[in-house]
Write a protein that binds this DNA or RNA. Structure first.
Lengths: 251, 251
DNA sequence: TCAAAAGTGTTACGTGTACACCCATGA
DNA sequence: TCATGGGTGTACACGTAACACTTTTGA
């Protein structure tokens, strides 16, 4: 049983009259070549804090809930402003609201956290400010947990949970497409699964299963310029799964 | 694709300077004999609103986020106060925060919604105020959606999502136990599944699958006073599933 | 002609489902 | 002894995993 939020506490230290703030943050995942040029790896953008608490540490991009914006819209807006990203897939992750998570005794922050998937091309276009940088997700989590480079606030907990959710969801939902361009050969798609699940998949079985499931459809066109047999290109098929349990729509 | 929250809006009607409030509500499910004494049915407690907006309508139990309480603790506290319930299973459902969901132009309410499972005995003990009553879940949702008896705010949307989540989760997680007393024959457990999924299950296969999965263990004792072969009693086994993706702990 | 990746076919195995059958108790 | 639900055994369908094999391109 994972319990990143800690056990359910009833009452905490008596902080007199905390100010309540509502924030929206997002864990953005992108798939890029790994640090050692090998298989693709999950990366995420972080923002360096320039004031206390946790000044100097890295944190998830986010900001206060904006007036006149729904929660998801606020997440999109803040992401656009801080990282230039407009993610293809955006989904609510969890609401974090422990009394003492803000790191300040006079303020309580409740964060509605979203998670997002973007294509590698998109983050390349984005113009990052000086205080935004991308990091490999697994390494970031590891360095948070062993104390080498802890993230601000409870963002390490949030990152761990987001990774869990991504890895769980990819096994029953065709979200892998959100990492890829419009058209792609099935091998690209398989590499996405392999990167996220952290293990190799049998190419032939993968092919059959994906096609049987109907989440992709052939474009009829083939890739060119390969030094081997040119593969067929596929596109993501309209979602016809019966058990969708999402609330946010995605474009 | 279900989209109870509506499509992702960017900007809404320009309400000048809304006051922001953070609330915590809970969808509580209990399994009771159905309206026609037949198979068990899902019920939930609702609270009648005694002021505008939506005065007179039924709403989910909830209240403002309490100082010095974490989110789940606040949910428990409010539930205890309004319905006398102390649910066995409590889990965060979703955060609802559309700009116009409060029904008032000068106020914006973001609700962190939990869902809970209680045993029938527990709700019997609870002392309900005059404005609390229990309703069959499916009928309530139907009467909300056909306009016969609409719930307050967006609580119909929330109820629908909670039912979906319950029905999805029961297929891969042993939460059904939360509806039952400490010890129970497997037939009781099967009836829980049948009630929630809305279809009959093969008793022999159900038995084998549940036992193989290891979510229950035998007490060695048998039930007495039946007018047929006395069944073995089982209890819920310590959770050893590897892929738990919950954040709140449950007792 | 060779390397490399695309794509097809075949088989073994495990899991879920349907259903026949026996067991233990009270009436 | 019968009705009722508890509990076991078994055959079959189907999805998944393993892997041998053929196809098509550029170098």
């Amino acid at each position: 049983m994972t319990s990143p939020a800690g056990s359910q506490t009833t009452a905490r230290a008596p902080a007199p009259h905390q100010h309540l703030e509502l924030a929206v943050s997002t864990v953005v995942f992108s798939l890029r070549p790994g640090p050692a040029q090998d298989r693709p790896t999950l990366w995420l953008p972080l923002v360096r804090r320039i004031r206390d608490p946790f000044c100097g540490r890295w944190a998830l991009p986010g900001g206060p809930l904006e007036d006149h914006h729904d929660l998801a819209a606020s997440a999109r807006e803040t992401l656009k402003a801080t990282t230039g990203l407009e993610p293809r897939h955006l989904e609510q992750l969890y609401a974090f609201g422990d009394v003492d998570r803000s790191g300040q005794t006079d303020q309580r922050v409740v964060s509605i956290v979203y998670w997002a998937l973007v294509r590698p091309e998109e983050d390349a276009e984005a113009d990052h400010g000086d205080n935004v940088a991308w990091f490999p997700a697994d390494e970031t989590l590891r360095r948070h947990e062993d104390g080498t480079a802890p993230l601000a606030f409870d963002h390490g907990v949030i990152l761990r949970y987001a990774l869990q959710r991504l890895r769980a969801k990819i096994t029953y939902s065709p979200i892998a497409h959100a990492f890829l361009p419009e058209e792609f050969p099935l091998t690209r798609l398989r590499e996405v699964y392999e990167a996220i699940l952290g293990r190799d998949l049998d190419p032939s079985n993968f092919r059959r299963q994906v096609l049987a499931q109907g989440s992709v459809e052939s474009t009829g066109r083939r890739m060119t310029g390969t030094n081997h047999r040119p593969p067929l290109l596929y596109r993501s098929a309209p979602n016809r799964s019966r058990y969708t349990l999402t609330i946010e729509e995605n474009p």
